[in-house]
């Protein structure tokens, strides 16, 4: 069931990056995955499970402004927690999108899997703080529910993307 952890919807790739490419920096978001041995084509979902497990193993439950906060296993965007918002609140002047995408993460404290709703805050320009990115389980645009490259402010008054939250839905 851990292979379900790989769901996410929008992607707001990074800001101006350090020396190398910011797409390369995605690799650091995948730190757990990158440590795994490189296996040939995986059709069993085994690697996916391994990646999710890897995230949980290095995740923490204290600092929600860090990319390894346990709820961010399927995060892709600028963290609203770094933009004077919260995991379940939009920063001043932005509005929560009525639509979201739902993934699930393991809480390392109790080992349980929780459903997480990733919701964009919209109506303001890019916040630009704390980009938190992963392409784990990410699918191309023709599978929109799993594509990171789509602006997911559908139904908000404005489609302008600001940052992303990670609200709790329930225990799976």
């Amino acid at each position: 069931m851990f292979d379900r952890v790989v769901e996410r919807l929008t992607r707001r790739v990074a800001q101006k990056s350090s020396r190398r490419s910011f797409l390369a920096r995605l690799g650091t978001a995948l730190a757990g995955g990158a440590l795994l041995p490189l296996l040939p084509v995986d059709r069993s979902g085994r690697l996916k499970r391994a990646h999710a497990q890897a995230f949980a193993e290095q995740a923490q439950t204290q600092d929600d402004t860090a990319c390894n906060y346990w709820r961010y296993c399927a995060m892709d965007g600028y963290l609203c927690t770094c933009c004077n918002g919260a995991v379940n609140a939009c920063p001043p002047g932005s509005e929560p999108s009525p639509t979201s995408w739902v993934g699930s993460c393991i809480n390392p404290d109790d080992g349980q899997t929780y459903l997480i709703a990733y919701r964009d805050c919209c109506g303001k320009g890019v916040c630009g703080r704390c980009p938190c990115l992963s392409t784990e389980g990410e699918m191309p645009v023709y599978r929109p529910q799993l594509s990171n490259d789509i602006d997911w402010c559908f139904g908000a008054r404005s489609m302008v993307y600001h940052c992303t939250t990670a609200g709790l839905v329930g225990r799976a």
């Binding site: 379900r4 769901e7 639509t99 979201s100 739902v102 993934g103 459903l115 709703a117 529910q145 139904g155």
Partner: peptide, 8 residues
């Protein structure tokens, strides 16, 4: 429902 519908 949560994974397939609820987002929208």
């Amino acid at each position: 429902y949560a994974r397939n519908c609820q987002g929208c």
